[in-house]
Structures are given as structure tokens and as C-alpha cells.
Simulated assay, not measured.
Amino acid sequence: MFDIDDTLVDLHAAMKDAMIAASRPLLPDFGAADWDGFAALYMADVHRYYDRYVAGEFTFSEQRGLRARAVFAHFGTPGFDARAEQDWIEDFEQAQPHHIRAYPDVVPALDALDAARIPYGAVSNNVHDYQRAKLDHAGLQRISILVGIDTVNAAKPEPKVFWEGCRLLGTGPAETLYVGDNYLVDGEGSAAAGLQAVWLDRKVAGAPSGSAAGCGAAEGIRTVAGLGELGALTGPRRL
């Protein structure tokens, strides 16, 4: 089982491109470095608006607007009122699908799983239909099994989300690898649910502080820098 955002799909790059498309009318003088800073602030989400959306505090559209509002306030952008915010959300959502791409190592990894007759699917902390469309835009229609937060009305790291993925795969947790880029949610969460946890550390940044690994207490979570390394993990302990 795979996470989707920043595991299979380069969401950061897609969101940055969509932000530029939606924001350029308000920030016509921004250059490349400015857009890097804009995207970094948005993705950092210091107020945890996305996590709060997952928890049910905001709608998806509301968290999108709140995050944009915080970034525009940081840059002191005038005129970002409620109407401008709604226009920005709409422009962003129209632009993002055109920039969705799978990482280069995804298709070869799925080809290898197909060749080995190892079933696979995805578990995501977003709603099913939104993520279904994202996979399709990325050319990953072959991933037919997909669990979203609305599938079992729960979100990672709750065990039942991972277990639903296993149920749909027809595999037990102990014989299922779960691969994701978020050490706490994907790594520790899937390990706690009894799956074989694989943390995808594409930037080779190391486990975050405050995690079990950061405290020197991580057990059973294996690390890969790319999906090409999964072959070594699906041999002796096959799915």
C-alpha cells in the first residue's frame, strides 16, 4: 500500500505551479526566489489548517483559503479580501490538475510489482474522489484500490484506515508493506497498525525530531530513498 501525496505524486511541485498561476495577478513583480518562499510558507502550514481539515474543523476549500490568506498576509499583499480569496481558490483548483505528475520511480516500481504479481493500492489522508482524480491525472489509473478519509470516516494514523486497505487488497497487515513520506503518520502509524512500515525519505533528511527514531526508539520502520529500493524489501518477506 502507498501513500499518494509526495510519495507517488509530486504534490509539492504541482501545488507550487498552481500557486504561481493563481497568485501572479496579485504579485506581478515576484521572481523565482519569491515564489520559492511563497510555496514554502504555504506548504509549511504553520497553523495546521490541513490537519484541522482532516479532523473535521474546516472544509477542504476553507483550509485552502486560510492557508493562502496567511501567506498573503505575510507578504503584506493588499486587496486579498473574501472575493479575491474565493477567486484564488478557484484558480488554484483549475490549475493544479495540469501540473500533477508521478515521480519518475513510480511506474517502474508498479511495473515490478505487476511482474511479481504483488497487489497494491493506496491509502490517503484526503477524500477518495479527489485523490482518484489526482491519480488519474498522474497517469496512475492502474491503482484501482484506494482508501480515502471518507471511506471509513477516519484518517491516518488510525489503524482502521490501514486495515481497510489491507482488506481491499486481500492481505493481512503483517504481510503488507505500507510506503509513505510522512514518518509519523505513515511510518509510525502503519507500524502501530501491524503493517510492515516503510518510510520514503526522498530528501534523505532523516527522521523528524519528536519521532520515535528521533528519540532513538524506532523499531521496525525501514527507510528507502526511492521506490526503486522496494524490490529488496519484497523478497524474503513477500506481500
Rank of each mutant, 00 (worst) to 15 (best):
R132N: 01
F72S: 10
R132H: 07
P28V: 13
H12W: 12
Y50H: 07
V54H: 04
Y42N: 07
V161P: 01
P28R: 14
D150W: 07
A217F: 00
I20T: 08
A115F: 05
E93F: 04
Y130M: 08
G187H: 06
I89N: 06
L200T: 02
P104Q: 07
F162L: 13
L110H: 10
A116K: 14
I89W: 06
L177R: 11
A14T: 08
F30A: 11
A84G: 03
R142P: 00
V147L: 10
P78L: 08
L239D: 01
V152P: 01
V198G: 00
F75G: 04
G79P: 01
F2A: 09
H74C: 04
T151Q: 08
I89S: 05
L11P: 00
A82Q: 14
H74V: 08
K16N: 08
Y42R: 15
M1I: 10
L200H: 09
S23G: 12
V152Q: 07
A138H: 00
L113A: 09
P104V: 04
Q63N: 07
G172W: 09
A55V: 03
W163I: 09
G148T: 03
D186N: 15
A44L: 12
G214E: 04
A14F: 05
N153G: 03
G210W: 03
A102K: 03
K156F: 01
S211I: 10
A55R: 15
V71E: 06
D186L: 15
F75W: 14
E175W: 02
G180C: 09
E62A: 11
R101S: 03
N126Q: 13
F162N: 06
W199K: 15
P236R: 15
T176F: 09
D150S: 05
L168T: 02
A122V: 12
H128I: 11
A174M: 12
A207Q: 06
P78C: 06
